[in-house]
Design a binder for these strands. Sequence first.
DNA 1: GCATAAAACCAGGGTTTCCCCAATATACTG
DNA 2: CAGTATATTGGGGAAACCCTGGTTTTATGC
Lengths: 218, 218
Amino acid sequence: MPTMKSKVMLVDDHAMLRHGMAMLIDLEPDMEVVAEAGDGDEALAMLKSGPPPDIVLMDVSLKTLSGFEVIRSLHNLIPNLPVLVVSMHDEGAYAQRALRGGARGYVMKQEPGDVLVTAIREVLAGNVYLSKQMQARMLNRVAGGGSQSEPLINSLTPSEFEVLHLIGAGHSSQEIAKLLSRSIKTIETHRFNIRSKLNLKDGADLIRYATQWSAEER
Amino acid sequence: MPTMKSKVMLVDDHAMLRHGMAMLIDLEPDMEVVAEAGDGDEALAMLKSGPPPDIVLMDVSLKTLSGFEVIRSLHNLIPNLPVLVVSMHDEGAYAQRALRGGARGYVMKQEPGDVLVTAIREVLAGNVYLSKQMQARMLNRVAGGGSQSEPLINSLTPSEFEVLHLIGAGHSSQEIAKLLSRSIKTIETHRFNIRSKLNLKDGADLIRYATQWSAEER
DNA sequence: GCATAAAACCAGGGTTTCCCCAATATACTG
DNA sequence: CAGTATATTGGGGAAACCCTGGTTTTATGC
């Protein structure tokens, strides 16, 4: 009988990346991928119906729900299930948000594959994993004394952040309202507040900012 | 002596995804990854110094240079080197630009791994590869059936083009009307017609297109 | 528990943009 | 020149967006 492997669940809307990560993980003798989901809803459904994995790897840049929302729902469902966030965003604000939201680690897609398995082992061992780059960013953020150069994006509330993300994904206020089951008026207020906080002069500016942010290029 | 494998070069700033794609490719008996680059400059430097691969897989969402720029430079360097674009953007505009820029295929990261190797074989065989989803999108974009895809941007009239440019510069309809000494209604009609001709679904799409376009100061 | 503050939610009313439509103007063609 | 195609110009109603203001919900400190 072989040693018990750690069961990993992948949540990412890029199937190609899921495949790649699954291979990296399955090559390791002490872990294996037992489930894959393309979005947050699918992930939550799997966790409700099937046996829970030992760890969840999740991209926070999902199509529909914000990954942060998913982390929260997931915590309500299975409180002690560790979550490792795999993101393409190298900004401290994302990592900070993820960790505050209950994630236990944060790695970037820019990093090589061995970082991933290291991070998984660390998180499974009960530690918090942050890449060196991200540690440096977080330190700057904390050591900055809260005085200057605090990115404006950090002043956004979770809802505002989620709306920004969906704007960046190309959705209208109407669509966002339906996706989040809120009144259009609420979404419009969020838009207004986001623009105020980020000092964006009009809607077109907001579109540009959101697009830039959510795709890091596009 | 083994059969000659096709030499693949990867260009993507996400090392983790590169690793994953490399594994998928190296599993195939008829292809292997011989080079990896994290950005466009690195890729061009490798191509200048070393032996050329048989095909280049490239993400167009690179940090420094736009992927489209890289494709162009690459074509100047080695004219017949086939390029397969691997993108996370599912918008027809991207695929269209990539193909017009000389790419021979376009696959999305949302698609499963076997699509990737299929696409590689197709492109190496001299064909153009487009996923089914993308084919449908492209068909919607191209008026009239068939071969030559006349750049949609060329169908814009001088006035429309001027308006597009000013939108890209961040101006509102109101501002553009004053700048050009026209009624706001005229500018609004131009906006509407531009969107129709370019198949852009809403105002936000227009903002994105205009911004992107004028950023390339063509 | 209670007070306070922050966040989330939404309505009303003005402004801008969308969308369809049409009149005039310019160009090109047989 | 007449006829047709394309460009430019805008009107009117609908939809989306901007902004103010206010209520409910949630988190936090005492």
